[in-house]
Simulated assay, not measured.
Amino acid sequence: MDKTMIELKETKEINVAEIIDSVKSDYCGAIDVFIGTVRDNPTGNKVTKLFFESYTPMAISELEKIANSVKEKYQADKVSIVHAIGDCLVGEIAVVIAVSTPHRKASFDGCQYAINTLKETVPIWKKEYFEDGSHWVFSHP
């Protein structure tokens, strides 16, 4: 039974162990996991939180496309992608990607492809909050 996860969740609902478990496979010898966390801004403005907003139906569709691409390009058996929506404090998890493949290189490469593509194509927007204000981060073309 396939229990992979393609989801948008509130930060407090992201369970890394559950996501890793969702991609375990007797067929695979490698699981690579990317965990993106909220960091303080090293440019001088202290980040207090990030806010993620999405166009959910399209975001889920794009995440599914990414997962399917990883399966095709890297012979991944299972791919799970979970991204936070709403408020995320510094240190909290914003995104988790887990990829299982028969061999490690494909798993690493698949994870990297997934996060890079997510950043470019998925309609999830980020607003940074600082001690003295906020602004939207426009990283999509």
Results as ranks from 00 to 15, higher is better:
65 K>A: 05
19 I>Y: 07
83 H>G: 11
16 V>D: 03
47 V>T: 10
55 Y>M: 02
49 K>N: 09
18 E>L: 02
104 R>G: 12
114 A>D: 08
92 E>H: 13
73 K>N: 11
81 I>Y: 13
26 D>R: 12
25 S>H: 11
136 W>V: 01
130 F>Q: 03
70 V>Q: 04
54 S>D: 00
117 T>H: 08
132 D>A: 12
19 I>P: 08
53 E>C: 00
29 G>M: 12
111 C>R: 04
15 N>T: 03
125 W>N: 03
77 D>M: 14
13 E>V: 01
63 L>M: 14
22 S>A: 06
32 D>M: 07
80 S>Y: 02
115 I>W: 07
93 I>P: 13
123 P>G: 12
31 I>R: 05
96 V>F: 07
52 F>G: 02
46 K>C: 04
27 Y>T: 15
118 L>D: 02
124 I>G: 00
46 K>M: 13
10 E>N: 13
79 V>D: 03
134 S>R: 08
134 S>T: 05
113 Y>E: 06
121 T>Q: 08
35 I>N: 01
20 I>E: 11
69 S>I: 00
101 T>N: 15
20 I>Y: 02
63 L>A: 01
100 S>K: 08
22 S>W: 06
20 I>L: 10
59 A>T: 00
90 V>D: 14
105 K>D: 15
113 Y>V: 10
68 N>Y: 04
30 A>P: 01
135 H>M: 10
125 W>K: 03
45 N>V: 01
89 L>H: 13
98 A>T: 13
7 E>N: 10
79 V>W: 04
46 K>V: 06
87 D>T: 13
91 G>C: 12
78 K>V: 08
111 C>D: 06
51 F>Q: 06
35 I>S: 02
117 T>Q: 10
8 L>D: 02
24 K>D: 03
26 D>I: 14
55 Y>C: 01
51 F>L: 03
21 D>V: 06
135 H>S: 07
85 I>H: 11
116 N>W: 11
66 I>E: 04
113 Y>C: 11
45 N>W: 03
87 D>F: 07
57 P>F: 13
128 E>S: 00
130 F>Y: 09
98 A>M: 10
89 L>C: 09
48 T>A: 04
79 V>F: 05
75 Q>G: 14
12 K>I: 10
90 V>W: 15
29 G>A: 12
42 P>D: 10
132 D>R: 03
37 T>D: 12
111 C>N: 10
77 D>G: 11
21 D>Y: 03
101 T>E: 15
120 E>N: 05
84 A>Q: 05
65 K>I: 03
42 P>T: 09
104 R>K: 14
52 F>D: 01
113 Y>A: 08
114 A>N: 05
54 S>R: 08
46 K>N: 09
43 T>K: 08
67 A>I: 01
39 R>Q: 13
66 I>S: 08
32 D>Q: 06
80 S>F: 02
74 Y>H: 14
38 V>T: 09
60 I>D: 07
109 D>T: 14
21 D>L: 10
128 E>D: 02
100 S>R: 09
124 I>R: 10
22 S>T: 05
109 D>E: 15
24 K>H: 12
127 K>V: 05
113 Y>R: 05
99 V>S: 14
65 K>P: 01
124 I>Q: 03
84 A>S: 15
36 G>V: 06
28 C>N: 11
114 A>Q: 02
